[in-house]
Design a binder for these strands. Sequence first.
DNA 1: CTAGCATTTCTTGCATGCAACAAATCAAAG
DNA 2: CTTTGATTTGTTGCATGCAAGAAATGCTAG
Lengths: 232, 232
Amino acid sequence: MQETSTLGTKSKPDSEPPLLSRLRQMIVTGAVQPGDLLAETALAQDFDVSRTPIREALKQLEREGLVEVRARVGTFVRKPTQREIHEMFELKESFEGLAAGLLARRGPVPELQQLRENVARSQEAVKNDDSELYSHLVHEFHSTLVAGADNRKLSEHYDLLMNQLAYHRIVSQTLSMPGRLQNSVKEHQAIIDAISSKDPLAAELVMRRHVASSGQSAVLAALHADDIDQPG
Amino acid sequence: MQETSTLGTKSKPDSEPPLLSRLRQMIVTGAVQPGDLLAETALAQDFDVSRTPIREALKQLEREGLVEVRARVGTFVRKPTQREIHEMFELKESFEGLAAGLLARRGPVPELQQLRENVARSQEAVKNDDSELYSHLVHEFHSTLVAGADNRKLSEHYDLLMNQLAYHRIVSQTLSMPGRLQNSVKEHQAIIDAISSKDPLAAELVMRRHVASSGQSAVLAALHADDIDQPG
DNA sequence: CTAGCATTTCTTGCATGCAACAAATCAAAG
DNA sequence: CTTTGATTTGTTGCATGCAAGAAATGCTAG
């Protein structure tokens, strides 16, 4: 898998250090697993720089909640606790609800057409039982919606949250739950309808219900995944 | 002014580097003003350490949006744009609305008594026309409410936001608007009532309306302050 | 075989030196 | 006086060396 960039939530085009981006990608894509050691010296050799810039990037990632730096022991990829996942889905619901409401309040919404096309392609993906494509489209739908809210601070907080939710293993597995795919597409359509109707309250409400239900599935999926990963 | 800690939003007792906290305090309390240069060498001498830990702290503050590091030029205290202030108040409304709803959902809420006492003291402050005390109590009310939501991730995002909103000059000035003090106390009481009634929807709604109205005042106040600061 | 202890190894924390570059300063020409 | 240019000053970016400490390892005694 060479190009993992298609899934990355960027929205930060203003000169972020390349090292930071690459390290973050390694974590959110699962190229390095929770518990793995990210030693400064080793990374410095891999990226052909000194320890200093590596160290700065790792400290940033610590602040983003993606790694844990234990003094004089090592820097490790972090795995969110069950409680944190629950908390983050509460936040996700709030963020995306806010975004939907803001979208419904905006005058012209160029992103609406993009969302409509997304739903159309999602229906195709469901019909073809292509869960991988569908997973990608779901991410794109939510990402487009938040970006369309036209609130950069919201986008920053949202990106922070989603990176920590480790998109892949937690969100992806959610969708394979039987029956949720069809419902999910219908809900996406309902969200678009509410936004088109310029009804902020309805848009927010529908969006939040949608996130809440998918969140429950996701938390359950994460719980189940834990049973497999760590029987303790 | 020795102890500025009474106003600091902590909620991060887990060993944050002291340097980072002190530098952050200097910014949010206004000890250093927007536009001021924070040179690594000078700070290193002030705090009697080398440039390295200073540098790490400044990079963190850059990520928190409090400073801007311009390569090979200098690190400067940042001032949020008008647009960012508007965006952040939209987020604040969402955060505190979420918190109020979560509080109303909780079983026992130990913080309720604390909030009631806060309102009582706020009434006293209004009666005595002590706007400084009142300003402090308002901050405490909102801070206590968010903390009571029992969602650490929410608290983290909230702290990030509030630090960037530069509590003092933006929020403080808001309250001196004539007539808002009495209204504000009534609204705080209404929020407590909704939470006590275990009515999450009402709690969130009242909270959001409260934040929204205070936000409008705050944005106007910031705009006015800009007229004074920079006529350009 | 086990338990305890010394040692070795590996990691981050911090200090410091130098390079790269931007911006301010100052001098000289018109 | 203004403008243009060279020079000086100041700043961050990065590499590297050493210290402090934690944890793994191996050795020794029982």
